[in-house]
């Protein structure tokens, strides 16, 4: 089992969701995050005073998947989120030791889907 974490542009979220559904990945968690990578944040001004290094809004998507679904999930996210410009985001894939479905108490692969 893996946990796929993707940080993407907020306006690409709908595209990513569509691609994930097309790849039969239907369970996702989405949260709003702030950050910047190589795309540095935009400066803000307060009454003429510059405030640098501000963070940009991004969307973080978390998806827990079985091994078979890791590659399709990554492909779907890339397909949905890529524009080719700086700021498209990153995907992290982490090992996932345990997964428990609260309602039934099921564990492991069965609990993920």
């Amino acid at each position: 089992m893996k946990l796929v974490i993707a940080i993407v542009q907020p306006y690409k979220l709908d595209d990513v969701k569509q691609e994930l559904y097309a790849a039969n990945v239907n369970l996702i968690t989405v949260s709003e995050v702030l950050g910047h990578g190589r795309q540095v944040g935009v400066d803000e001004y307060y009454r003429g005073v510059k405030e640098t290094g501000n963070l940009l809004r991004k969307v973080q998507i978390e998806i827990a998947v079985n091994e078979d679904f890791v590659e399709p999930t990554i492909k779907a996210i890339i397909k949905g989120a890529r524009t080719g410009k700086i700021g498209d985001g990153k995907i992290f894939v982490l090992d996932l030791p345990r997964c428990i479905r609260i309602r039934t108490g099921e564990e492991g692969s069965k609990a993920i889907g």
Partner: peptide, 15 residues
């Protein structure tokens, strides 16, 4: 790019 970032930041440097 400005439209994606939003007009507040891109046109006014102020969110």
């Amino acid at each position: 790019e400005d439209e994606v970032i939003g007009l507040d930041l891109s046109q006014h440097h102020e969110r």
